[in-house]
Amino acid sequence: MKIQQLFTDAGLRSTKARIAVLKVLASADNALSHPEILDKMSLQKEFDRVTIYRVLDWLTEHGLVHKISGDNRAWKFQFSQNSYTHVESNTQKKQLLNNSHQHAHLHCTSCGKVTCIHELTPQFSKQVLAQYHVESIDINIKGLCEACSHSH
């Protein structure tokens, strides 16, 4: 998947910073914090930490990434690979982004690695859904990842 094409298909304006940040997140195996993203972009000196914060907010707002609450109220970000669908027809409205973030996360209490689990989705009764408009769900399952469990 080409990052530039994702912006084009969604009708969103791409910038060098937006493309660079999304490339980092799309190539990551797990969710990354702002400092981890900055570290991975350290060779690209034209982007400062404030620019990266703004890009992350914009990408989150447009459903290209989602935020996951981490330790000490620090956010981690992950590419929302399952949140878009390519629409081929020019006659259809290009509805690419689905901003619902409704799945669980595995959170390693040792190394801090966060992984999305799309197979586990919450179910709500009709009574609950009648009372609330659910926009996002944050379920964190805490424990040790495979690497950390072998080292303990």
Rank of each mutant, 00 (worst) to 15 (best):
108 C>A: 04
31 A>F: 00
104 A>L: 06
77 F>R: 02
7 F>W: 08
90 N>S: 14
29 D>E: 04
42 S>N: 13
9 D>M: 03
138 D>G: 01
34 H>E: 09
91 T>E: 14
133 H>L: 08
110 S>K: 02
98 N>R: 11
21 V>I: 01
88 E>M: 12
95 Q>S: 14
70 G>P: 11
43 L>F: 13
73 R>P: 13
124 F>Y: 04
70 G>A: 09
149 S>A: 07
134 V>S: 09
124 F>D: 00
152 H>Y: 13
80 S>G: 14
46 E>L: 09
150 H>W: 05
135 E>K: 15
39 D>P: 13
57 D>I: 14
14 S>K: 09
143 G>V: 02
123 Q>L: 08
103 H>Y: 02
92 Q>M: 12
99 N>I: 13
110 S>T: 13
66 H>L: 11
48 D>W: 00
15 T>Y: 07
20 A>E: 08
6 L>K: 10
141 I>R: 01
94 K>S: 00
78 Q>I: 12
122 P>Q: 07
82 N>L: 14
95 Q>P: 14
131 Q>M: 10
29 D>R: 06
107 H>T: 10
114 V>H: 01
78 Q>K: 04
114 V>N: 01
12 L>H: 09
84 Y>I: 15
64 L>R: 00
147 A>D: 11
36 E>Y: 00
114 V>D: 05
84 Y>W: 15
89 S>P: 02
15 T>G: 06
10 A>M: 07
60 T>F: 09
36 E>F: 00
53 Y>W: 12
112 G>T: 09
93 K>T: 12
107 H>Q: 10
34 H>F: 05
61 E>Q: 09
87 V>W: 00
72 N>G: 10
76 K>S: 08
123 Q>T: 08
116 C>Q: 15
73 R>Y: 14
74 A>F: 03
13 R>W: 07
110 S>G: 06
133 H>M: 08
69 S>P: 08
9 D>R: 06
7 F>C: 03
118 H>N: 14
51 T>M: 06
96 L>H: 11
139 I>T: 10
122 P>S: 04
42 S>T: 10
113 K>P: 07
120 L>G: 07
79 F>R: 03
26 A>C: 07
68 I>W: 04
151 S>V: 13
134 V>P: 00
38 L>M: 12
